[in-house]
Design a protein around this nucleic acid. Structure first.
Lengths: 157, 157
DNA sequence: GACTCACTACTCGGATACCTTCTGTCCGAGTTACTAAGG
DNA sequence: CCTTAGTAACTCGGACAGAAGGTATCCGAGTAGTGAGTC
């Protein structure tokens, strides 16, 4: 999995506590990561429609939906792409004892097992929303942490 | 995920219907894939203890355990490695508003969600054994298919 | 006929290049807020 | 005081190199089977 997924998720969490647009450079400074590379991840989120980019002097990124309606799966698939990890190359149709294509109506058992696991993984990620993460952060680090982030984001550089 | 996982799983399935050692070159010819690269996957299975290599003229690979006690997860982790797909880099401990390390007793919520999804994925793969795959293949392609594979494997080149 | 020995052919195993993908970086197009002048 | 044009700075977006892991390949070490030779 791409490492940028972690950055994107953290950005979504902090964007929760900001009503004004937050520029990518500010988010990068907050997390102490490369601003140029983080921009790429935010562009992916923008293409997926999870965040909206505001151009101009006071521009930046803002969430488009309520945090409770954005799942972790949405962010992961926006950054890493919706392609499944396992791709069946139909080995059973190759070689001297190849199964004829007409007999391959159902997917091969291996692809089915992999697909089921992938779906279980997706379901687990779909069950967690950005709002849930915010709630967990508040429980772990205390409610003041998010307020401090909000204040730091809005304070002039 | 590495593409060699698919090859390794198919090899385990066909090794079910062979009591004598099967050389890697024979398996590669059966699946019409690169023999040299397939050897690497089989070596990974050998290191994990799923198959045993027999050297010499009539050598090859044989399964070490009963097909029912080998899970798909075993094969996947043998080939791709046991490392999880998501690795938390502890972003919360970086930047101007870093959470002090002493307050980070529990893993961060993002890592927890990812870990739960990974565990669901592993559980789904652990629930399917090689014997289950063999059963499914027999149901789909008919019991004769496996017998033909067994005959082709034992027949002299 | 049975045993011994050397040979051949075949096997696995690790070390070696190539290529796609991910990581990281840069600069240009476009938009907004601000400033200052003029009516 | 209000309007308006101009300026300047800041933003995003896509195009451009470098590095890492996966893909594909090769050759060497070792072993079991085979055959001839000998007792």
């Amino acid at each position: 999995m791409s490492g940028g997924v972690e950055w994107a998720l953290h950005c979504c969490v902090v964007l929760t506590s900001a009503e004004e647009p937050v520029p990518a450079s500010r988010l990068a400074e907050l997390h102490d990561v490369s601003a140029s590379y983080l921009a790429k991840q935010l562009q992916a989120l923008s293409r997926a429609g999870l965040v909206r980019s505001v151009e101009g002097k006071a521009g930046g990124y803002i969430l488009t939906r309520e945090p409770a309606s954005i799942t972790v799966l949405d962010v992961v698939e926006a950054v890493d792409g919706p392609a499944p990890a396992f791709i069946c190359t139909e080995i059973r149709q190759r070689g001297p004892l190849a199964t004829p294509a007409e007999s391959c109506t159902a997917p091969c058992p291996i692809a089915r097992a992999m697909g089921a696991a992938q779906e279980a993984w997706r379901e687990a990620l779909r069950a967690v929303s950005i709002a849930d993460l915010v709630q967990d952060v508040a429980s772990a680090s205390g409610p003041t942490a998010l307020a401090r982030v909000s204040q730091w984001l809005t304070s002039p550089r």
